[in-house]
Lab assay of single mutants.
Amino acid sequence: TLFEALYDYEARTEDDLSFHKGEKFQILNSSEGDWWEVRSLTTGETGYIPSPYLA
Rank of each mutant, 00 (worst) to 15 (best):
I27G: 00
D16H: 15
D15Y: 15
A55K: 10
S30P: 06
F25N: 00
Q26P: 00
L28G: 00
I27L: 11
V38A: 07
E4W: 11
A55S: 13
S18P: 04
Y53L: 10
G47E: 03
T42I: 08
S40P: 02
D34N: 07
G22V: 02
F25I: 02
N29D: 10
Y48W: 15
G44P: 00
D15F: 15
I49M: 15
A55P: 07
S18H: 07
S31E: 09
Y48R: 13
A5K: 02
E37H: 14
D34F: 14
L41G: 02
E32C: 14
T1K: 11
D15C: 15
E4L: 10
T43G: 02
Q26R: 06
Y48E: 07
S31V: 09
T13K: 11
P50D: 01
D15I: 13
T42L: 13
D15P: 05
R39F: 06
N29P: 01
L41M: 11
E45Y: 08
A55N: 10
N29L: 04
K21C: 06
E45V: 09
T1S: 10
N29V: 06
E10V: 13
S40Q: 05
W36S: 00
Y9C: 07
L41K: 01
D8M: 03
D8I: 04
D34Y: 15
E32I: 11
T43H: 02
D8G: 04
L54S: 09
S51F: 11
F19D: 09
R39G: 01
E23G: 15
R12K: 12
D16E: 15
D16A: 15
Y53C: 13
G47T: 12
P50S: 05
K21R: 09
G47Q: 02
A55V: 12
T1Y: 11
T1C: 14
A5W: 05
R39Q: 06
Y9L: 12
E45A: 12
S18K: 05
P50Y: 15
E32A: 12
T13A: 11
E14M: 09
Y7T: 05
L2C: 11
E32M: 13
E14Y: 09
N29R: 06
Q26D: 14
K21V: 07
S30N: 11
A5M: 05
E32T: 11
T43W: 03
W35N: 10
P52G: 15
T42Q: 09
P50T: 04
G44D: 02
Q26H: 08
I27D: 00
S18T: 10
H20N: 08
E37F: 15
R12N: 08
Y48P: 00
T1A: 12
I27E: 10
K21A: 08
V38T: 00
A11Y: 03
I49G: 15
E4R: 04
D15H: 14
S18V: 06
L41V: 08
E4N: 04
E4H: 08
E14W: 08
T1D: 11
D8A: 05
R12L: 10
A11M: 03
Q26V: 14
D34C: 14
F19E: 07
T42G: 08
P50L: 10
W35D: 02
A55F: 10
T1E: 12
T13I: 05
P52L: 14
S30Q: 11
Q26G: 01
F19Q: 01
E23R: 01
P50H: 12
S18N: 06
F3K: 01
L41N: 04
L54F: 08
E37S: 04
E37D: 00
E45P: 00
I49Q: 00
T42E: 14
F25S: 00
I27S: 00
D15R: 15
G22W: 04
I27N: 00
W35A: 03
F19K: 01
I27C: 04
V38S: 00
S51W: 14
K24F: 11
A5N: 01
G47R: 04
L54M: 08
T43I: 02
P52E: 15
E45M: 13
I27V: 12
F25C: 01
G44F: 04
D8C: 11
L6V: 06
L41T: 06
S30G: 11
S18G: 05
S40W: 04
G47C: 09
L17Y: 04
F25E: 00
V38Q: 00
L6W: 11
G47D: 00
L6G: 05
Q26N: 03
A55C: 13
S30L: 08
S40T: 13
E10C: 13
T42A: 12
E23T: 06
Q26W: 13
L2S: 05
W35Q: 09
L28H: 01
F3G: 05
V38I: 02
G22R: 02
Q26T: 08
V38H: 00
A11D: 02
D34S: 09
E14F: 11
Y48Q: 05
